[in-house]
């Protein structure tokens, strides 16, 4: 279906334009995918929709800006951003989520807590760093020509890093012991516990990975965009949610592919409709998937409700 749409768009709007938006779609898709995989892992393991995930993206990008401001070279700043966001994820798990889970509060309360946390974090970041745009530090003027298509140099590097990390995440999940344990937890935390997996440790690792990948996603978004502001994460989180659901909630590979798919579809849509309505296209895809295939495009046919 994707191919048919692509060919139709190509015939209608011209192949060069299609190639350009496809390239943009892959660029967008890689940070959606990185954001989505962390969100879906946390959901899979803890059954928690982390509304504050978007703020992890913002936090990572701001930490990179802080690194730049302290005078580190850009690659070091990027590592600082990812590492501090991972630490933030762990700190929140230990200081907030674990005590709350111990109290056995309801699902609705957990969701509202995540929502309140997201709002708090966004405004706390705006409070400390100021609401204005800040330069991200990447070079956004240099461009590279790929045949008839054009892509920013920073964009190309960011995409390369993103796709590499996506591949590494997929391999780690597939082949390493840690990845297998994480997936086991995502299937059933009780069963995983009975087979002797240290669930507390895996949950911590999952938070670190989820937040770290989100931080990276924020950085890879901010660098080509050239600037960061406190609403960075919120502007992306809906597309990331769409990617998670399209890929099947809790399914890490699905989230990776779903992220790329949402990026592609949203960019393609800009050929036909007002780019400001991109988010509506993501919504349309989401609704279609929910109505036709609620377990997600790449789900295993497991029912949505637990």
């Amino acid at each position: 279906m994707l191919a048919v749409t692509g060919i139709a768009l190509g015939l209608a709007e011209g192949w060069r334009e299609l190639g350009q938006v496809t390239l943009n779609g892959i660029v967008a898709g890689n940070y959606f995918a990185l954001g989505a995989v962390g969100l879906t892992l946390i959901f899979g393991v803890l059954r928690l929709i982390n509304f504050a995930h978007g703020e992890f993206l913002t936090f990572g990008a701001y930490m990179m800006v802080l690194g730049n401001w302290l005078g580190f070279p850009l690659p070091v700043s990027m590592v600082v951003g990812v590492a501090t966001t991972a630490v933030l994820g762990v700190v929140l798990e230990v200081g907030l989520w674990r005590p709350v889970r111990r109290k056995r509060v309801g699902e609705l309360q957990l969701l509202l807590l995540a929502l309140g946390l997201a709002f708090f974090m966004r405004n706390a970041i705006a409070f400390v760093a100021g609401p204005e745009d800040r330069a991200a530090g990447g070079n956004i003027t240099a461009g590279v020509d790929l045949g008839p298509l054009r892509i920013g140099r920073t964009e190309l590097i960011a995409t390369a890093i993103g796709l590499t990390v996506i591949l590494v995440v997929a391999l780690v999940l597939r082949y390493s012991s840690l990845g297998r344990q994480t997936r086991a937890l995502a299937d059933s935390i009780q069963l995983a516990e009975t087979t002797g997996i240290d669930t507390d440790r895996i949950v911590l690792v999952t938070w670190a990975a989820s937040a770290g990948l989100a931080g990276l996603a924020g950085i890879l978004y901010a660098l080509p965009a050239g600037s960061v502001n406190p609403n960075l994460g919120f502007s992306l989180i809906l597309s990331i949610f769409a990617a998670v659901i399209v890929g099947g909630v809790g399914n890490a590979y699905g989230a990776l592919l779903g992220g790329l798919l949402i990026g592609l579809v949203q960019e393609w849509s800009t050929l036909v409709i007002d780019p400001a309505m991109k988010v509506a296209v993501g919504f349309a895809v989401l609704i279609a998937v929910l109505l036709l295939r609620p377990q997600g495009l790449f789900g295993h046919g497991r029912p949505v409700d637990r």
């Binding site: 969701l111 949610f241 919504f283 929910l290 949505v304």
Partner: peptide
């Protein structure tokens, strides 16, 4: 056909 958390996402999208 949705449980609570899906509904939250769908309505948040609707808001946006």
């Amino acid at each position: 056909r949705l449980t609570g958390d899906y509904l939250a996402i769908v309505t948040l999208f609707f808001f946006q």
